[in-house]
Simulated assay, not measured.
Amino acid sequence: MAIEVRAASVFDDVAAVVGPKRPDANVCFCLSYRLTSSKENLSLRGPARGERVRELCAEDPAPGVIAYDGDEPVGWAAVHPRADTSFATNRRIPHLDDLDVWSLWCVRVRPGHRKQGISHHLIAGAVAFAREHGAPMVEAYPVDNGGERVDLTMAYVGTRAAFERAGFTKAADTTSVLNGFPRIIMRLDLR
């Protein structure tokens, strides 16, 4: 298996990984943190969510990266300048400084492709993508689960161990809790 990670500029590939099975479903579609306005997030229903993601895929930079096994999209990582996300105003995850950091908030691997190391490729690919676009620092908000199992529906934020393996270090605690585990801020300096 040769995994290649590329910019998420092909909507159909993004939809294959994070889109709903039914186009009228009101699933996240990885917009919850990407949009700066909770009002916009709540107003997008059914197919409108997919159309908003289609618009984001056409922008530069793209809304994240996709991992491919050959031509098949097998994973997704959301990474973008924090200023263009809800993390810009999130009260539970504090700003540590005024650096124009990029946020990496979602890592998802498709069923049937999990436990093959694809998440590691996604994190590395997201970091490379941010670096290519001039990011001075990448920040992630994983759970600090101490090796305990994280419910699959909440595992999208990643774990402290996964980000440590990618060279990130803990920068701060947060008041955010997911699946009973505290979320922390982890950073990787790209300067």
Rank of each mutant, 00 (worst) to 15 (best):
I3W: 03
E4L: 12
V5I: 12
R6P: 01
A7L: 04
F11L: 11
D12F: 06
D12K: 12
V14E: 06
A16E: 14
V17S: 07
G19E: 02
G19P: 01
P20E: 08
K21D: 13
A25T: 09
N26L: 04
V27N: 10
C28R: 08
L31K: 10
L31C: 03
S32M: 09
L35W: 00
T36G: 14
S37D: 13
S37E: 13
S38W: 11
N41A: 08
P47Q: 14
A48W: 11
A48V: 09
R52T: 13
R52C: 14
V53Y: 08
V53N: 10
E55W: 08
L56D: 15
E59V: 03
D60N: 07
D60K: 14
P61D: 02
G64M: 05
G64L: 02
V65E: 03
A67F: 00
A67T: 04
Y68V: 07
D69N: 06
G70R: 05
V74R: 03
V74I: 10
V74L: 03
A77M: 04
P81V: 04
A83W: 09
D84G: 04
R91Y: 11
R92E: 13
R92P: 00
R92I: 00
I93E: 01
D98W: 03
L99P: 00
D100P: 15
D100L: 12
V101S: 12
L104I: 05
C106W: 02
R108S: 05
V109Y: 03
V109D: 04
R110Y: 08
G112E: 14
G117I: 03
H120K: 15
H121Y: 12
G125P: 01
G125D: 01
A126E: 04
A126K: 02
V127I: 11
A128L: 09
F129H: 15
F129N: 10
F129G: 05
A130E: 06
A130N: 09
E132F: 07
A135W: 05
P136H: 10
M137F: 06
M137Q: 13
E139G: 10
E139W: 08
A140D: 09
N145E: 06
G147D: 05
V150C: 05
D151F: 00
D151W: 07
T153G: 08
T153D: 11
A155W: 03
T159V: 05
A161V: 05
A162Y: 02
A162F: 06
R165K: 11
R165G: 00
R165H: 04
A166K: 06
G167E: 10
G167F: 05
G167P: 10
T169C: 13
K170C: 11
A172R: 10
N179G: 13
R183M: 15
I184C: 11
R187T: 13
R187H: 01
L188E: 12
D189N: 14
L190V: 02
